[in-house]
Design a binder for these strands. Sequence first.
DNA 1: TCCATTTCATTGGGTTGCCAACGATTGGAT
DNA 2: ATCCAATCGTTGGCAACCCAATGAAATGGA
Lengths: 155, 155
Amino acid sequence: MKLSMQGAAPTRRLWNRPTWLLNHLAGSGRRVLGDQVGPAFERNKYGILAALADGGAASQSVLSSRTGQDRGDLVAMLDKLEAEGLVTRTPDPSDRRNKRVEMTEQGRSELKRLDKLVAEAQDILLAPLTQDERAEFLRLMKSLLIHHENYQDPG
Amino acid sequence: MKLSMQGAAPTRRLWNRPTWLLNHLAGSGRRVLGDQVGPAFERNKYGILAALADGGAASQSVLSSRTGQDRGDLVAMLDKLEAEGLVTRTPDPSDRRNKRVEMTEQGRSELKRLDKLVAEAQDILLAPLTQDERAEFLRLMKSLLIHHENYQDPG
DNA sequence: TCCATTTCATTGGGTTGCCAACGATTGGAT
DNA sequence: ATCCAATCGTTGGCAACCCAATGAAATGGA
């Protein structure tokens, strides 16, 4: 058995640092999601479409809040989504600073496709955990995020 | 109370995606660590010094495995650490591809300083959790990492 | 009415992490 | 002995993420 077959051997100190574990586990998640969903930017596409489906049409700023993505980074993303015909971007007449982002029918079907792939990825990521452990894991993460980022729990 | 005082309101679908939670929670960790330890690159400094203290002198490749950092990114980091006199880098005579990285006395004292700050950051990050919850949280994360990254649990 | 503050979308830069090369060097197989 | 493959440190590129600044537009107060 070659040495390269073995996994990395993190040092004890880092292995017990939650920040280190979180960083690398987030990386695992990104990889699993990438393998399942496809190229990187498809995932952000999903976030935007999911936010629109869950909360309805919204300005880019609100969309940034719903997805947790940076407002600036949303611009380029929406340019692509708009070019693909998945969303429309129309100026808001009542407040001309805003642009109202709305999902198209095509966007809805694309979301349905991505939703399945993303759900599968979550299952792969949490595969080693029992159902109870998964629920507990989510609960703990949400609790931390609410505390540190002041997130509103959507329930 | 202004709207900007409220936290972001993630949409329900993303809020229940482990990959989304992990991504953003890792961000929280990075922020807490940054606030506590200082500028960004101090954290990676810590990782290298901790790996050297835990496992002794090693080649850059082994160091990459211990810290989980990319081999390539280690180069620039070690350049800085070497310039600061925290580590020494000497070619390995028995295998001239390798460079043996060793911690200096100065590096040891710097690690002691950082170790305290990093430990405080972990405490801040996990503040909302009980001791039992913290242990469970670490256990779950380690279990996932071992499964997906094939990591060797250092115990 | 006028002025200061705020929010909006947009742009650009800076940092980090990840991946693919490259030359040098080693070890193994034939 | 001589190729072949693997590993080492190093470099560079690419995508994400975060932050700061900009001009346009709205808001609130004096």
